[in-house]
Simulated scan of single mutants.
Amino acid sequence: MTIQPARLSDPAVRAFVTAVNAHDRDAFMDLLTPDATMSDDGADRDLAEWIDNEIFSSHGHMDVDAESDGGHALIAQYRNDTWGEMRTAWRFTVTPDGHIARFETGQA
């Protein structure tokens, strides 16, 4: 059963999923710390290049199936125009002021 983004526990993670699904690059970038990092399938990637390729230019969309760790870990069906749909795991490092310093994703 899909969890609606508005029901996600952590406000930063909720805003992340909302921005991805709305294809709102400005809102997405506002969530990140200036030195934010990310990894995909265990390998660190260039953040700007990855989000362009995997989210914004390919119409990424997340349907969240489960959350844990206070809302900082998600299992989601992720789809985009490049790869189609896959079951993915997401983990977020959220700063005390509510920004995302790092996110990690990969196939679940």
Rank of each mutant, 00 (worst) to 15 (best):
Val94Met: 13
Leu8Trp: 08
Leu74His: 14
Asn21Ser: 10
Asp52Pro: 07
Gln107Lys: 07
Asp69Ala: 09
Phe92Trp: 04
Thr33Tyr: 08
Pro96Asn: 04
Ile75Cys: 03
Thr2Trp: 07
Glu49Cys: 01
Asp40Glu: 03
Glu49Lys: 06
Val13Trp: 03
Phe92Ser: 01
Gly98Arg: 14
Arg7Pro: 01
Ser39Asp: 14
Gln107Thr: 09
Ala48Trp: 05
His59Val: 01
Asp26Ile: 14
Met29Trp: 09
Ser9Met: 03
Asn53Glu: 13
Ala108Leu: 12
Ile100Asp: 02
Asp63Trp: 02
Pro34Phe: 15
Phe56Ser: 12
Asp10Lys: 04
Ile55Ser: 04
His59Ile: 00
Val64Cys: 05
Arg79Ile: 01
His99Glu: 12
Ala22Thr: 06
Asn53Asp: 14
Phe16Gln: 02
Ser39Ile: 02
Asp81Trp: 10
Ile100His: 03
Leu47Gly: 03
Arg91Ser: 07
Asn21Cys: 08
Ala48Ile: 00
Asp63Val: 09
His99Tyr: 14
Ile75Pro: 00
Phe92Ala: 01
Ala19Thr: 08
Ser57Lys: 15
Asp30Gly: 12
Gly42Arg: 08
Thr95Pro: 12
Glu54Met: 04
Asp69Gly: 06
Arg25Asp: 07
Ala27His: 08
Leu32Gly: 08
Ala43His: 15
Ala22Val: 10
Ile55Met: 10
Ile75Tyr: 06
Pro96Cys: 15
Gly84Pro: 11
Ala76His: 02
Trp90Gly: 06
Arg91Asp: 04
Val17Met: 07
Ser39Ala: 12
Ala15Asn: 12
Glu85Ala: 14
Thr82Gln: 02
Phe28Cys: 07
Glu104Phe: 02
Asp30Phe: 09
His72Tyr: 01
Thr37Phe: 00
Gly98Glu: 07
Phe16Ile: 13
Phe103Ala: 08
Asp30Asn: 15
Arg91Thr: 02
Asp81Gln: 15
Arg14Gly: 05
Ser39Gly: 13
Gly84Phe: 13
Glu54Asp: 13
Met1Gly: 15
Ala101Asp: 13
Phe103Trp: 09
